[in-house]
Structures are given as C-alpha cells and as structure tokens.
Nucleic acid binder design. Structure first.
Lengths: 336, 336
DNA sequence: GCTCTTGGCTAAATCGCTTTAGTTAGGTAA
DNA sequence: TTACCTAACTAAAGCGATTTAGCCAAGAGC
C-alpha cells in the first residue's frame, strides 16, 4: 500500500524543514523570506510527486473547513436540484464546497444531518427547516453557528432567511384566475403548518374572499405516495363538479394533478383552468402549457450564499431576512 | 465566542483521563474494562453539555472519513438527481455520507473535483467520467483509491463500473419502432466519443442496417444552450421531411425535441413517432405520452454502492463490471 | 509473605498540518 | 572590535481525536 505523501515527506526529501514547505505551499514564501530558489525546488518536487495536502489536518489546525452544509427537502425535486446546483456554482467561485443532503422534510433526518454537519465542522449552514426543528436551530445559533434558512422560516426564531412572498404570489395568481373569469377555484395543498404552505393558502383565501367566492380546499397528506396523491386529487375533482379551475400549491402536486386530470379525461382550459406553484419542464411543455408561479431560483441562491458568506466574515451577529417575489408566468392553461 | 467542547474538556470536568472518555464514547467501555458507573457518568455529561465529536480529528487519526465522493454530470438533470438520491439513501444506511458535485461533463472541472475529494480524503469515488479524464483516474487507482465509474466507462482502463446496455437497449428500441412500421427513423444524439453515446448510436445503426433502412443522424454539440438545441432539431426535422420517427439519445435532447416538434406544429404519432432514452415526468405525462428506454436507476445505485463498499473492505484489488438492461416502456408516441 | 491475576484506569505518541518564536550566519555601522 | 540588522530558515507547540503500552491496587493461590 503506497502511503500518501505528507508535507514531512516533502521536507525530508529536500532536507529542509516542514515549516518552509508549508510557507511555500501557502504562498507565504516572500512574506516569510524564503528564497525564490528554494520555493522553486519545493514547488517542482510537489508537482513531480503529485503531493496533495490533507485538508483534514489543515482544517483541524485552522478551524476552517471551507465547507457549507446544505439541507434541502429533496434533491430529486427539480426546484431543489436547481437551487442546489446554483448554490454549488456560486459557492465554488468563492472558495467554498457544498455538502448537500436531503431531509425528506423529516424532523429526525434533519436532526441527524445537522449533527453530521456539526461533526464535520462545516463553516455554515443553509437549511430548509422541517417542522419541529426549532430547538436544533436554536442550539446551532447558541453555538455561534452561521445559519441561513430558505424556502420557509421559523417564526419563533430570529434567523436570517431567504424566502419567497408566498402569500403575495398566491394572491397575484388567484387574482389572475379570477380576472380570467374563473369562479369556482379550488386549491390543492399539503396538510402542513410550515410557513410556505400556510402563506400560499392565505393568499388563495384572501383573493377568493375579496371577490366573494366560495373556498374549495383539498389538503393532501405529507409523504403520500404519488399514486395516492393522484387518487386523492381525482376524488377531489369528482366530488366538486362545479370546479372550473385548480391552483396547485407546489410542483409535485401540480404534476400529480395533471396526471389525475388526464386520467379523468378532463380537458384543461376549456373544462378546467390550471395553475401551479413552481416552474417545471413539464409545465412549460405540456399541452396545453401550464401557467405557473415561478420562484426566482437564481436570485434565491445568490442571496443565500451572499448572506451566509457575509455572516462568516462578520464578528458581530446580524440577521438578514429576504423575501423575493415569485413570477407569474402565464401560459395556455389559464387562457379563457 | 463560546468554544466548542472537546473530549479533553469532558475528561477535565470529570477529573478522568481522555483515554477513558474516548473508550466510552466508542463503545469500548467493556472491552477496555471501564466500570459501568464511569461510563454512565461520562455519557450523561456528554449528553447534558451536547458534546459532538470532531470528525476531522477522528478521521485524521483513523485514516477513515466515511465519505464517498460522487461526481455526476449534472445534479439538476433528473436522471442524475434520482441516482444521487438513491445512492445517498443507500450509503446512509451503511454509515457513509455522500459528497456530491456536478462535473458538467467538463474535464477541468472533473479534475478539480477529484483533487478536492483527494484533499478531503474521501474513502471512495463514484464518478461519471468526462472525456479525457483517463490520466486522473489512473493516478487515483495507482494511489490505491477505490473507484467505481458509472453511466459510461473508459475502455483503456480496467476499472469497476456500472453501466447500462446502451447498444442492446437502443437496438431493442429501434426494433420496436421498425416493427411498428416506422421506416424513416432519425436519431438525435450528441457529438461525443464517450462510450454511452457511441453505443446508443451503434444500436440504432445496427438495427437500421439489418432492416435495410437508411440512416439519418443528427449530432448536437455538447453544452449547447437549450434554445440552440431546439433550433438544431427544428432544422433537422425540416430538412428531412420524410422522417416518420425520431429516437432521442438522451433525456434533455428528448425534452428539447418535444419543444421543437411543438413549435413546428407537428403531430406526434400520426406524423412522427418519438422515443427517448431515459424516463422523465414529462415523457410519462405528455400528450401523447412518450415511449422511453428507461435506465434501471434503483438497480444502478444499489450496484454502485455495493461494489464500492466491497472494494473498501477488501485488501486485494478486484474489478467488477456490471451492465444492466434498460427497460423499454411503450407509450402512445410509438403506437401506430 | 510472596507472586500472579485481573480489574480499572491513564500517559504519551501519533495523524498532517499551521504558526509563533526563535536561531544562525554574514553584513553594516560606529 | 562590538553591536545591530537582516535574510533565510527551523523547532516545537497545538488542533482533537485514537490507541498502545503500562501503572497501580486488591484479591487469589500457594
């Protein structure tokens, strides 16, 4: 088993001290008055033998890992995958690596992930908090950890976060539907107390009530299988024959909804208007194309990484809370 | 700044040695004859003060990080996102964490990622190799690193890998199209020398030639923007008016293809049969639904993690090369 | 009374790096 | 000649864990 080379091996081969090698490798040769000749010799050897520094040792010594822990709800959900991808790019450009994991919006899993991140000494955290995770976040903050929440926040904790104006967005979307002449508009959302879902429902409710329309709400159980969700939606549609439009509160409900509508052989637009939260390839390309309330994922990821890196730099605590506006993209499914 | 507690702090508080604390925390209390009473006291304190072990130090000492580096082409591509998700789950159950990154199928980026993984001392690597990465993989292997490739392999290197029978799959898909009566079948693929794309093209060619049909091939430049890809496909279809079916060699070409076809106002199935490599929500739900050659992602991820963990356990080198069969899923788009 | 066990615990080396506080040799200034 | 610089380099402590080798006291066996 060929042992992997350490800085000490390099020093030994050149008959110099470890210190010198370290200075040279860290670009401090001049500052520390190492002669250019020595620097050149070291760099050449390092390159020739393919020496790679051990970041574990480095981080242990310096207390910095240059790693950001990112917990998303589900990396196979295109919304989160895209945000993750953008955050990764952004972080990379600024010298940070992202360690990302899916929480499945499960409290226990999230707790475990936070523990793993702590053990690995990540420099900062970006988290889509699952319900019931308040204590763990507070504990992080108490330990001076740098945390930014996203997609949703925890009302009882004063942390930094980046979210979307869920209520305003939903209200805007609903207003559009109503202006198009839809009257019996239903919402399909999740049974959830989390802020993002609550606010989407509030936006729907507010718009409907302002126009004196009757509410028609379907709440789907969290973590239900796709098949069940489809069945639930079919059931909802069948039992509310007067429905003329549906607002889906999140992308996978929208996807399941399309499947349900297809199975029921209902024609979108002429029989039923459709609008969904979150954009998706499917919504863009579906026939008819589906109107959506798209989250500004570039802006979100940029804000997330900026805020977190700011926190890492500053000594004193500060809290930044950003609310971005989702964008209403009108397509065929809401055209009358 | 509240300092994070170390094992030494725990020992000091109880007036015992670091060694004892370490033994207890690692479940070696009995084996090392630590009295149950002491063990209990330590565990209680650890729990009360919320001590979390420093994995950096642990890994530095033991030489094991329990981290697997995973390089996929693009985490925002549903195929890779799903595989990543499954690998993560599998690895988790077996005590490993996944560190994943997107290579964008770019050689330089991949090299950098491999370097990062080496620096971070990952225990093993799962890589979708970009073109021209042979030297770097060989270098890894020379350093006794444990590596499994997937999605494609490097013919010049004898490594473990998990791939799909691209040629057989394509051949099967083409045979289906031909049996359905399609005669002027085109393929839209990527300009790429990588094995996966080559084999898909070979499968197409073989089937067509066996039936005496004329080839009609469109190769799209790698990393082209979605808009350009759509334009290229529109151009391809317009210039080959006799085409009666198209086989898309990978998911995002298929997605772009649907958009192109939609823009050209061509009716799928009656005017043009469509079949794509890789499954996708969009293909399942599109109207008409699109037939696909789906990769067995559960099986792939299981094999990947199993092979890698086997490698981690065994002393002697061994090479495992697995080829799985993709599954032809027939939908409306190829029904005549 | 003496040796041998064994139970219960610990000192110190080590992993690979950074960083502080030097050392040494040769040159200048007075 | 002596004191002081400076350029060029280095010894050793420390980050937080694991692990080897060993200490000490009390009881067992003869």
């Amino acid at each position: 088993m060929k042992k992997v080379l350490s800085i000490a091996d390099i020093a030994r081969k050149l008959n110099i001290s470890i210190t010198s090698v370290s200075f040279i490798l860290n670009g401090k040769a001049e500052e520390k008055r190492i002669s250019p000749e020595l620097a050149k010799r070291v760099l050449k050897l390092v390159n020739d033998v393919g020496y790679v520094p051990n970041q574990l040792a480095k981080s242990l010594r310096t207390g910095k890992t240059n790693i950001i822990g990112l917990i998303v709800e589900d990396i196979s959900n295109p919304f989160f995958a895209n945000v993750a991808r953008l955050i990764e790019e952004n972080a990379n450009d600024r010298g940070y690596k992202i360690f990302y994991c899916s929480s499945e919006n499960n409290t226990i899993k999230t707790q475990e992930l936070i523990k793993v991140f702590r053990e690995r000494q990540v420099d900062g955290y970006i988290i889509t908090p699952a319900a019931g995770i308040e204590k763990d976040i507070v504990s992080l903050l108490n330990n001076q950890a740098k945390v930014v929440l996203f997609d949703r926040y925890l009302p009882s904790i004063n942390t930094s976060y980046v979210i979307v104006d869920n209520m305003g967005g939903s209200y805007k979307a609903m207003t559009h539907l109503i202006q198009q002449g839809f009257k019996n508009i239903g919402i399909v959302t999740l049974k959830s107390d989390q802020t993002q879902m609550q606010k989407r429902l509030e936006g729907y409710t507010l718009a409907m009530e302002e126009h004196g329309l009757k509410l028609c709400i379907k709440k789907i159980k969290f973590h239900d299988s796709t098949e069940n969700i489809i069945d639930e939606i079919k059931d909802f549609i069948s039992k509310n024959i007067k429905l003329d439009a549906i607002f889906f509160a999140t992308n996978y409900l929208g996807v399941a909804g399309l499947e349900a509508i297809k199975q029921l052989n209902i024609s979108i637009t002429s029989d039923l208007g459709v609008l969904s939260f979150d954009d998706h390839d499917l919504f863009r390309l579906y026939s008819p194309s589906i109107s959506v309330l798209a989250q500004p994922i570039e802006e979100m990821s940029e804000n997330l990484i900026n805020i977190l890196l700011d926190h890492l730099d500053e000594e004193k605590e500060s809290v930044k809370q950003i609310m971005l506006s989702p964008k209403l993209i009108l397509r065929e499914s809401t055209q009358r």
